[in-house]
Amino acid sequence: MHVLITGAAGFLGRALAQRLLPGRRLGDRSVTRLTLLDLALEGQPPDGVRHCEGDMGDADWLRGALNGGPPIDALFHLASIPGGTAEQDYPLSRRVNLEATQTLLEYGQQQVAAGHRAPVFVFASSIAVFGHLPALVDDDTPTRPQMTYGTQKRIGELWVDDFSRRGWVDGRAVRIPGVLARPPARTGQLSAFLSDLIRELAAGRAFTCPTTPGATTWASSLPCVVRQLLHAAMFDVATSGGHRVLTLPTLRFAMADLARVVGRVHGTPAADLVRWAPDERIEALFGRFPPLLTPRAEAAGFRADADLEALVRQALAPG
């Protein structure tokens, strides 16, 4: 089985790649070849792993990387230009979030035209597709993205549905919430403060949070989201009522509750170390999340972290 991951050097991509090394299994099939795509990839690839370093926004390079191996059985498209950066650099976000996604989907079309099976195509979408949120979000909540990133992710979801309808890919688009805890890095993600809060308070360091204590958000641990991505490649679409675009189950919690649980898990006076300095833009984007119902994904076998303590314990776990 040949698996390809875009954005393989990223936070999610690295963790997913470790679960899909040659010899591991994806469902009932053994991975025999793994292709990793990103701007730069660390170290020498082990046997059966191919590193492709280049710019996802360069269509010619991307086509060459896709055509450099055997037919692809499963493709995980994680690469993207995230929220803050997408707002500041629209041309870059268009090339990566739209044009590269289209190139990847059209590879599936070409693979089918050549007589091979359509690849399973797992598209990492985002809860940013919702934009302003109503009092309750469920599977039928309309999408009204308020940022370029969310708009581009919504377009990708529609393409996944359309290419699947045509039989060119076996697509599944999953809307991922915040993933914790990301390592410190300049990723352009406005939600990075959530990971910073956990990391700093766990270490007993003071932290200024750009929300009110009662601000509520949705988030999952990294191990939880990796499990969900793997499941996305394997679940029977019939179990979700034929829906290929799913909002993933996640936890909803207040920032003050997160701080208290970090202190309890890591044995620090976390609640006393937080200074609350609300930024209206950050609060509006990441601190007013209502209750969430995800019956379609749950019927298809997707699961959230067990509770907030489980999320915090896994958020900084090694590996």
Rank of each mutant, 00 (worst) to 15 (best):
L4D: 01
G7Q: 01
A8P: 06
A8F: 00
G10I: 00
A15S: 14
R24H: 15
R24Q: 14
L26A: 05
L26E: 05
G27I: 02
S30P: 12
V31H: 01
L34C: 06
L36A: 00
L41Q: 01
E42Y: 05
G43L: 03
G48M: 02
R50N: 13
C52F: 12
M56Q: 15
G68E: 13
G68S: 15
P70G: 12
I72W: 06
A79M: 00
I81W: 01
G84M: 08
D89M: 06
Y90S: 05
R95A: 15
A100Q: 01
L105D: 02
G108Q: 04
Q110P: 06
Q110H: 13
R117I: 09
S125F: 01
I127T: 14
A128I: 06
V129Y: 08
G131K: 03
G131E: 03
G131P: 04
A135D: 15
D140C: 08
R144N: 15
Y149L: 05
Q152I: 00
E157F: 07
L158D: 14
W159I: 04
V160T: 14
D161C: 14
F163C: 05
F163W: 15
F163Y: 15
R165C: 11
W168E: 10
W168A: 07
R172W: 08
I176L: 04
I176W: 04
G178F: 11
V179W: 04
V179R: 00
A181R: 09
P183Y: 11
A185V: 09
L197R: 01
I198M: 08
R199H: 10
A202Q: 07
C209P: 05
T212N: 12
T212V: 09
P213Q: 08
G214V: 06
S220M: 09
S220I: 10
Q228E: 13
Q228M: 04
A232S: 13
A233I: 04
A238F: 09
T239P: 00
T239Q: 12
V245Q: 14
L251W: 07
F253D: 08
F253A: 10
G263V: 03
G263A: 09
R264A: 15
V265S: 00
H266D: 05
P269C: 00
A270P: 10
D272N: 08
V274N: 05
A277H: 13
R281C: 10
I282R: 07
I282K: 07
A284H: 13
L285M: 14
F289W: 13
F289D: 14
R296P: 05
A297D: 06
E298L: 08
A300G: 08
F302D: 06
R303H: 11
D305A: 01
L308D: 11
L311V: 12
Q314N: 13
